[in-house]
Nucleic acid binder design. Sequence first.
RNA 1: GCCGGAGUGGCGAAAUUGGCAAACGCGCCGCACUCAAAAUGCGGUGUCCGCAAGGGCCUGCGGGUUCGAGUCCCGCCUCCGGCACCA
Length: 832
Amino acid sequence: MALDERPDRYPFPEIEAKWQRVWAEREQFKVTEQPGRPKYYCLEMFPYPSGRIHMGHVRVYAIGDLLARYKWMRGFNVLHPMGWDAFGLPAENAAIDNGVHPAVWTYENIDNMRTQLKRMGISYDWDREVTTCDPAYYKWEQLIFIRMLERGLAYRRRSRVNWCPSCQTVLANEQVEAGRCWRCDSEVTIREIDGWFFKITEYAQELLDWCDRLPGWPERVLTMQRNWIGRSEGAEFALPVAGRADLTIPIFTTRPDTSFGMTYAVLAPEHPLVDRLAADDEERRLIEAFRAEVARETEIERLATDRPKRGLRLTARAVNPFTGREIPLFLAEYVLMGYGTGAIMAVPGEDQRDWDFAKAHGLPIVATVKRPADWKDDQAYTGDGVKINSGFLDGLGIEEAKRKAIDWLVARGLGQAKINFRLRDWGISRQRYWGAPIPVLYCDKDGMVPEREENLPVVLPRDVQISGKGGSPLAEVAGFVNATCPKCGGRARRDTDTMDTFVESSWYFLRYCSPAYERGMFEPGAAAYWMPVDQYIGGIEHAVLHLLYARFYTKVLRDLGMLKVDEPFQALLSQGMVIKDGAKMSKSKGNVVDPDDLIRRYGADTARLFSLFAAPPEKDLDWNDRGVEGASRFLNRIWRFVHTHLGEMGAAAGPADARSDPGRAFRRLIHETIQKVTHDIEHDFHFNTAISAVMELVNALHDFERASLDGMARPERGALLREAVETVLLLLGPVSPHITEELWAALGHRESLFTRAWPVADPGSLARDAVEIVLQVDGRVRGRLSAAVDAPEAEIREQALADSKVRPWLDGRQVARVVVVPGRLVNIVTRG
RNA sequence: GCCGGAGUGGCGAAAUUGGCAAACGCGCCGCACUCAAAAUGCGGUGUCCGCAAGGGCCUGCGGGUUCGAGUCCCGCCUCCGGCACCA
């Protein structure tokens, strides 16, 4: 049966529309800097305007709004903004498919999604909305680009890059997942191309160090970042080529202690020195053939670690500087140009890859670490041990031998200690249209010249042919390409690439601080007040990508003297995915739940309640239509209760004066619930248990209502019902704001629920005079008793031993020991 | 292979510090209301033995520490995520 036909639902469509209108009219969530008042910057990752919100969005924004409203009620000045990550490929693809201009498509989508989000009733300050494809936004990004250029933090070079043949553009390393494009899943190929890079490697050490100083971040995200940065310590040294005084090969190793075991050395096939090592044309031909063979390999094939290692032996030989012996030189595909120096010393005794290669090519293997007695010698040994076969290092431990080997290299001027990072510079040039233009020109006379600051923004031209085939569409726009050289005034050509859209998302949180500011990226005072973001919320898929870039960009702005903070995000909440029927929601699987449908059928309050109740935020959320029914039922139950008891609660004057025992017990539960809900929100964001505590209170409210019909004074009953109901509304407000605001008003309040202070548990009401003590015999529960809170241990012990439920279990046995845990339990340990 | 996380009822999940395992919700069963249904309300619901009272067994597996272990320690297994020929 269609749910919107049900007459028994509370009238959520009217209520939700009404309060959304009232909040907007009152400008209730509009904020300004208020020095001296504690601030709270609550931020959810802004969406790409794909056209429609999905359940993942509902989940993040429900979490963010709960925190924002909660912090409001706790007296914080809360910045809670929303905007659009508006540049990107889908807009261009839509243009190719439907002939709609990317700008038109994007702005229409934004309008749709804004309407959808507003229907969720989230407490955004919509006056701060930011759209990244607006020239007033990307202007500042272009300015910072020029500043980075001046500092050498942005540079241009020709390099081998990841190329997505489907998106027709370059991808950064972070945007390749297992050899495939992060966006379209196509297999990535390698291309040599000119492009711009941001020098994120300059910040590798700092980005790594701060991973230890972000206690508000989930460990798994920090681990992924540490792995990605990939620091390793070792040595770099010059490997001499036999008979070639003019030629050495730079080598990076993390195991300088094993140098005496170097029985051959390997260069990456594309290593630039290889050309100089070739003995004659014949060998040059062999090298080219080998390179071509390797180049044919797809990234996927190269990733397979378990196949035979192919190599090409060169006629040139090297000299192991430690042993003085000549060793063979190879090209092999297992050595990558992109890491270290692109050349390795091979120590088959202590490195498994070298071992495999040595076995395949019949090369000698020398052990330089003493093996354990039962060692089978069928693989490389990477464990600990004493150095052997290593000349002056013999007898040392590995760590000490590393230091001595480096000292030896330094003393001879051959090398030094070296730290290497896996992190590569961030390639930001994209050969696509819908992005921020790179503010640089090329002049025949002056070469590469940045645009003058007063000419910014370099506006993305509107009239352009987008075919999706080959090269940047901007290159075809004569009016854009042909420009004046800012230096000599002669003719110059603009750079026709656009910036990676991850550049826009690296600083949008700063723009929110002063979104209309015209004299710079952000107003310094506003940023000083609001930054850093106190709580950032978003999907785990950005653990490395966006979160690493934003951290880097923040540090760059700090070093440009624009910002005081070292890190943008104080705390991070990585919420799980929304799953249905065991799979991520997707159109292809046909398991998508449309938030619009859901809100139309149940209301935003129910959608929000369910998505917060079904699982703790960091876990995947299993969508369940029956569970949504349950959430709806719960809100209806509260609605009915308030409306059927309005008269009685309205008659209550003053605070609840609980005189009777049941009254005091009920009041204690009200205050225990306040305590529990506050703890669950503050301690670990476990909103699911916070909500279950409110559900328990509502259940108890119904029980109390029935039980107190006879025998309890009417004023006491009415006052307690009112106190309980008001507590429920306050605690549930941040979860389901419309219904709680409506019922709050129905109870006679004239001011908004969200201007009320968050309730605080009253210690007097929490106090209890008796506690239940569990009685165990040999660890098994056999009875229970009620004891005064302050009853002495000896007394409880006596009562336990004398208890009628306990005594049969002691028959024929001796009491060996009695453990009394005050306020909790007694365990009687027996013997015999 | 390395790093990180997780295994608890039919299902989603709870369990502050080592102290009553399964709160809350879903589903299911029963009852009330109803001509009937829906909705709503009330009660029950880990599992095995038992008519019942009651008792045994239960947190992936095997050990250990402890009066007491879902929780701590040791050794395994499985699943999920990340990185991966990184020298």
